[in-house]
Amino acid sequence: MRMQAAVHLVFPPQCLSCDALVTTDFGLCARCWRETPFIAGLTCDCCGMPLPGDDPGHAVQCDDCLAIARPWSRGRAAMLYRDNGRRLVMALKHGDRLDLAKPAAGWLHRVAAPLLAPDTLLAPVPLHWLRMLKRRYNQSALLAGALARRTDLPHCPDLLIRARNTRSQEGRDREGRFANVADAFKVNPKRLWQVQGRPVLLVDDVMTSGATLAACAESCLAAGAARVDVVVLTRVAKDG
């Protein structure tokens, strides 16, 4: 405690999103907190999208999840992909802000807690090895690892393999997104023993259509997973 206090005297804690001083490490200042669209209240049980109204006391789903058969069981999202939520994801994904994984794990844990069982296996959505060479790290693996440490649950960073280097999902409509990732993932043959008969929690940074997570979930279920749930740091919401 004394060492930490001394460090804070020399290097006062700063906001994760700006240079403002804050009282604790890995915190947001008041302004950035207001600009961060954390998800709370009634949400879709399948994808984490916020919904209007009060909690009816049973699971509800958004229009998209009623229209699309999701291969996973339940899903949660910590924040919406806009304003400071988008800035934080972009900083983690493209800005080498690996330090964001630790506080993000706390935000993920807040929403993912109902999905976690003692034997849940945490696994990230994988990058293709060519993209990994370019980026040097997988932001989803950082999130999954930090969440595993926080929850003391097993983490398998290479459970899934991206079998082909899919093109970016940006600019594609829903059908195009699902077609782009069809058969793109498989369970690592060396990890089959870890997935069979147990629940899996897939971790990713952003969910838009859910196509990537669906492809990953289908691979886990085909390999014998008892159940697959998903949690994402941010959820893209439709305008209007």
Results as ranks from 00 to 15, higher is better:
R2Q: 10
M3R: 07
Q4K: 12
Q4D: 12
A5F: 11
A6R: 08
H8Q: 14
H8E: 15
F11N: 05
P12N: 10
P13K: 13
Q14A: 15
S17Q: 07
C18E: 14
D19I: 00
L21S: 14
L28S: 04
C32S: 14
E35K: 14
E35M: 11
E35T: 14
A40L: 07
A40C: 09
L42Q: 12
T43C: 15
D45C: 09
P50E: 10
P52L: 07
G53W: 14
G53A: 12
D54Q: 06
D54A: 04
D55G: 04
H58N: 02
V60T: 15
V60Q: 12
D63P: 00
L66S: 05
A67H: 03
I68Y: 14
P71V: 03
P71T: 04
P71N: 02
W72H: 01
R74Q: 13
R76D: 13
R76G: 08
A77C: 03
Y81P: 10
R82A: 05
N84M: 11
G85F: 08
L88Q: 07
L92K: 11
K93W: 11
H94K: 07
L100S: 06
A101E: 11
P103L: 01
A104I: 09
A105S: 15
R110S: 14
R110L: 10
R110D: 12
V111C: 13
A113V: 12
L115I: 01
L115F: 02
A117D: 06
P118D: 13
P118H: 10
D119I: 00
D119T: 06
T120W: 00
L122M: 01
L122G: 00
A123R: 06
P124N: 04
P126Y: 11
P126F: 09
P126A: 05
L127D: 12
L127P: 09
H128T: 04
H128D: 06
W129N: 01
L130M: 08
R131E: 02
R131L: 00
R135P: 05
Y137T: 05
N138L: 09
Q139I: 06
S140C: 13
S140D: 10
A141T: 11
L142W: 12
L142Q: 11
L143H: 01
G145K: 00
A146G: 00
L147Q: 02
L147T: 02
A148E: 08
T151C: 03
D152A: 09
D158G: 08
D158A: 08
L159P: 06
L159I: 10
I161D: 06
N165H: 15
R167E: 15
Q169V: 10
Q169W: 09
R174H: 06
E175G: 03
R177Y: 08
N180P: 06
A182G: 05
D183N: 13
K186M: 14
P189K: 13
K190R: 15
Q194D: 13
L202F: 02
V203P: 01
D205C: 03
D205Y: 01
M207S: 14
A211L: 00
A215R: 07
A215K: 07
C220W: 09
A223H: 09
G224L: 04
G224Q: 08
A225W: 04
A225V: 05
R227T: 10
V228N: 02
D229A: 03
V231C: 08
V232C: 10
T234D: 05
K238V: 01
D239I: 00
D239G: 05
